[in-house]
Design a protein around this nucleic acid. Structure first.
Lengths: 342, 342
DNA sequence: GTTATTTATGTGAGCGCTCTCATTTCGAGT
DNA sequence: ACTCGAAATGAGAGCGCTCACATAAATAAC
């Protein structure tokens, strides 16, 4: 079916040089006469020569592969980071090999990490995994440089990169406080998520600073849960006038439930989300939220990983500040109960 | 820093056998005495031996790598397919190496494909790429088995897998017709997308069958465009009573625009989308749409690719039927103008 | 022009594995 | 016991490349 692939000797023969000279051209080594180099390059072209990465890896003991270990998710954030990291790795000549695991199944972790270990990857980047998974990866993959995006707070042994979730939570809450709200509820993400916990702490910090009583309900990342909590919410005299949800999905489900109960957002209850999905401006009402720049995050993480691979010793963590995006789901409390339909 | 990795000879020495016997154990070859096998396995374990994939590839001329060429998108669909394909490939012992390209930049195509060619991949799966990209991939990657998910209709030279978009468009339109609608508008996806074109043809077919006049507006995949078209829509006497959009994002933006203009969905205009995003049930109103099972699609594609790799000659195309999911954004036309707020 | 230096090229070995083929060991069969 | 064929193991080569080193050619030094 396929013609035997040309190798370095075939090229050498055609260019009438030694295989070593071909290798030198391949690796851009100096001290080659321009004429020779051209001859070799021409030979490569006519033979359609592609260096064999396996042979190269074998002798250099470098696989040129970077593992991307990610939870088995189709969320907007991780997908964006994956893309950004792949592109960045490719620019540096590395290959990104992705492995999706289930975050709730230790066997799945082991299986995924095992797979990566078979490929002798040089570096590993993880997205939003627990410190247990990181620990397992570090153990099963010794000699592999590791970087964790949005990792557990407990993952102090690892180099991490992430959004400043604390700041995000703080800013979101602060925004509501400045709009005059006093009874501000926070719906958290999953307990197991450190991002969610940091957002919670940011919320608590802003509330404490304003001498307000924090009020927290446990959630996760899904619209379903947002909806359910919206249905269950007490609407008595002590009902919150504003809610900060740990992500935009929660906010979407919550809005639906609230609206269904005749509670207007933002006239009766103001809402601030987290993430800024591409859809968030088209929610009803357009969602005020905290934007994460996933692309930037992914690029930063990969750059750090690559420079570590190149031998640089970097500081252990890096964070990116998120940004509040003000739209229409959160308004001044004074304008409440006027029900102005726009 | 790192201790030298154990190789097959180290294992052989410890187990007091020849390197060849170790190799046999590694490859599960028969005719090994159980006692010997155990001894070798024990030696592997104590040395933490991991076979070197490069050495193996070099001699077997098999890279065990499958390329995943995908447009640089963070959309729900592609992300899900990617996950499914990776998992499926992994099950078969293959490594998935993802490359994200920009669908509108030929240089980006070439760059991505070039990268893949360096890795000597055995197979390539693509998602929603134009036939030009496929053509380029086929040219630059001879001897690589290729499968295209949701490819161009013109990509007749390639094995393809996809949702039956024609059927999806037909079913969506038919649903609206059965609800009594006569003036049904279709907002398409991008012209360059074959999926979008198939959906359009499904729509046209259903309309023709019911002797209704088709009415089509050009869109793309974004909520922004949906919003803009909703703002621009003529609401005169001949205004449509129902709209079928090529995806859920369009429907979301459209709904927002319509609602903003005082037009109720579904009381004034019924709406059917396409995709069934996890968020779609929480749109306002919950969106009636056509569901694609991306996971199933990805798995099917990878299975086909793998069996082709194993030498099977399969039929050129496979399609999966999408499914109508009825929610609240499309209602009987007779119940219109009653404005029942639920 | 001869020698010393640099620059350009060539030679051979070996990375860790799987091939092919040779050899040993074992358990019947008579 | 002896032969014989199958089962189990071993030995050596070679995949395509880069490495360290050796050598040849070109340039500089005087």
């Amino acid at each position: 079916m396929n013609v035997k692939k040309a190798n370095i000797y075939d090229v050498a023969a055609l260019a009438e040089v030694s295989h070593q000279t071909v290798s030198r051209v391949l690796n851009n080594q100096p001290n080659i006469r321009p004429a020779t180099r051209e001859r070799v390059e021409a030979a490569m072209l006519t033979l359609g020569y592609q260096p064999n990465p396996a042979a190269r890896s074998l002798v250099t003991a470098k696989s040129n592969m970077i593992g991307l270990l990610v939870a088995d998710t189709v969320l907007y954030g991780p997908a964006g980071m994956l893309n950004a990291m792949e592109r960045q790795a490719r620019k540096a000549g590395y290959f990104a090999i992705t492995v999706a695991i289930r975050s709730d199944s230790p066997e799945s972790w082991a299986e995924g990490i095992q797979h990566l270990s078979k490929m002798h990857i040089e570096g590993l980047a993880t997205i939003a995994l627990s410190s247990e998974v990181l620990q397992m990866a570090a153990t099963m993959l010794p000699n592999v440089t590791l970087i964790a995006i949005d990792a557990d707070d407990e993952a102090t042994d690892f180099q991490t990169v992430g959004i400043d979730n604390f700041d995000g939570g703080y800013v979101a809450t602060k925004h509501l406080i400045e709009l005059g709200h006093k009874r501000i509820l926070h719906i958290t993400g999953p307990v197991t998520s450190s991002e969610a916990n940091s957002r919670l702490r940011g919320y608590e910090s802003a509330m404490a600073e304003a001498h307000l009583e924090p009020s927290v309900v446990q959630g996760d990342w899904s619209s379903d849960t947002g909806y359910r909590l919206g249905v269950e919410l007490d609407l008595d005299a002590a009902a919150p006038t504003a809610i900060f949800t740990a992500n935009d999905h929660l906010a979407l489900g919550l809005t639906k439930a609230l609206t269904g109960r005749g509670v207007s957002v933002p006239d009766d209850i103001s809402l601030v989300g987290f993430d800024d999905l591409p859809e968030s401006p088209y929610f009803n009402p357009p969602l005020t939220t905290v934007r994460q720049d996933f692309t930037q995050l992914g690029e930063l993480a990969m750059q750090l990983l690559l420079s570590n691979l190149a031998g640089a010793k970097r500081k252990k963590t890096a964070t990116i500040k998120p940004q509040l995006v003000v739209r229409e789901s959160a308004t001044r409390i004074s304008s409440k109960r006027k029900s102005s339909k726009q």
